[in-house]
Amino acid sequence: MRKLVLAISMLAFAGSAASADPLQDRQALMKERGKIAAGLSKVVKGETPYEAASVLTALQALQANAEKFDAEALFPAGSDKGDTTAAPKIWQDMAGFKETHDNYLTDVKAAVAAAPADVDALKTQFGTIGKDCGTCHQTYRIKKG
């Protein structure tokens, strides 16, 4: 049992280290995005105290992550197959998909530029960003079990 767990975790590690596979690349990028958002959310919810410098660092990390998102490279034709939750709609409407992500990037950049001065300011910006996440997942992602 232990060996199996070890083998699986090694496989998972090997997977994350590989980079020729667009499915793994885009999933890693989204995972990283979720982690940064998680940290910010803790501040919004008051679980971590507000600290201007670390909030700004997190927002900058979110921007760097968003700028790495190259829709054409991460979602090439044919990458709708396999273990993916990407919706067929991405390839039917690549322009709309890109535009939706651009809106997200714009809102993240605006948050970085504004450098929220307190938790309330962050709350508003984080709310806008969170809504962008939902808007994209509404149309361009399919839930799988």
């Binding site: 979720g34 959310s41 709310g127 939902g134 808007t135 997942h137 509404q138 992602r141 399919i142 839930k143």
Partner: peptide, 18 residues
């Protein structure tokens, strides 16, 4: 907020519901 505990977000038809 639309965020799951592991920081995925709401998707699909649930977006409007949320």
């Amino acid at each position: 907020t639309g965020f799951t505990p592991d920081f995925d977000t709401v998707g699909g038809a649930m977006v409007d519901v949320q």
